[in-house]
Design a protein around this nucleic acid. Structure first.
Lengths: 194, 194
DNA sequence: ATTATCTATAGATCTATAGATAATGC
DNA sequence: ATTATCTATAGATCTATAGATAATGC
């Protein structure tokens, strides 16, 4: 029985981290408290010393999921800058990669949990909005379009197309169609100068 | 107690119709059989003379939801042809309208249930794929781009952008950002000749 | 003494089934 | 006689709480 306050902080973090992954795999409603606690190496009953309710964990885990779901893209941008490649194209390619499609647990929550958040708490929807705005600012920074309004429009189009393509690529039964959605949108967005 | 076989057919249809709306409002898991049956004017226990399990109803209701969620768009295309307007622009505008954003129960299930279908049954994912392919063919038919590959690419980009924009517009807390997402994507897709 | 975690359980909810009821349809 | 629907309930599952246990930290 770990008992120190340091242990409690570590337990809390572990629960949120596990929930952030499991929510993306199974949606905001499915994973049961008992399962999450077991996966964290704890028992069901201890949960309520960490969170007032299941909803509180979901809110906290959503913030975490939104944040670390963006890592794949920011990593790709960083790497492309080292190699002198186009960072906008690198971000689009990373987002639309089959690896991202397959890795639900580590995926971008803007796509994976969009539908659930629309029916979710106000706090969750605020965090979601912040992540969308953050993506848009990154994309605007990567585009070398001089007119601000046109730059913003291209950033919004790119983000919307990436989110929509990935949503459909994951839901569609036919692997060929799934691949086509990712590839064609990738081509359309990276064609011409960024 | 209605008892005729005609009544049974009507009951079945009513249950599926109600489920198709409620699933889009609350996701594939939430609505309980008892609620759906009550809304259909029936009682809980009668359910299993119509469906072998809850999953069977979900499969059937998803097919229905995907089908009648496309009506708004096909209506807009028909109307635009009467008025001599651009049918591609009419479809994009109808999809990205605030009315569509608000009307979850009657919305396009490709957007509303994309995340749930990714975790859903094979039958559901097959129906989803058919609806995506159907949308793509409609869009290809509306674009006056002569090169087939380029036409297909533009159709895929347009559908992905519409689905992604609507997903985010529904999930985001800030109404201003929500409106901007719909408007900018609408402008980007209808700018220039279709 | 305090508290992080555990064991045990109450209370709610949901799917699925069993058996009764009352029209339909041969 | 058949069957569409209803009433009632078994069985599973899940959230939240109550009280016990065993380290921590003053």
């Amino acid at each position: 029985m770990g008992h120190s306050q340091a242990d409690k902080v570590a337990s809390h973090l572990r629960i949120v981290e596990i929930a952030a992954a499991r929510l993306r795999e199974e949606g905001l409603e499915r994973p049961a408290i008992g399962e999450l606690m077991r996966e964290a190496g704890l028992t069901h009953g201890g949960f309520y010393r960490h969170f007032g309710s299941r909803g509180e964990l979901v809110d906290e885990a959503m913030v975490r999921a939104l944040w670390d779901g963006a890592r794949r893209m920011s990593d790709a941008v960083t790497a492309s800058r080292k190699h002198g490649d186009d960072p906008f194209a690198a971000m689009v390619t990373a987002y639309l990669s089959p690896e991202h499609r397959e890795d639900l647990a580590g995926s971008c929550a803007v796509t994976t949990l969009g539908g659930d958040v629309a029916r979710g708490s106000e706090l969750t929807r605020a965090a979601y909005g912040n992540q969308v705005e953050s993506y848009l600012r990154v994309l605007e920074g990567l585009l070398d379009e001089p007119v601000p309004a046109a730059r913003r429009q291209r950033a919004v189009l790119a983000l919307a197309a990436m989110v929509g393509a990935m949503t459909m690529a994951r839901a569609v039964a036919d692997p060929k169609l799934s691949g086509e959605l990712l590839e064609r949108v990738g081509e359309a967005l990276t064609e011409g100068p960024s």
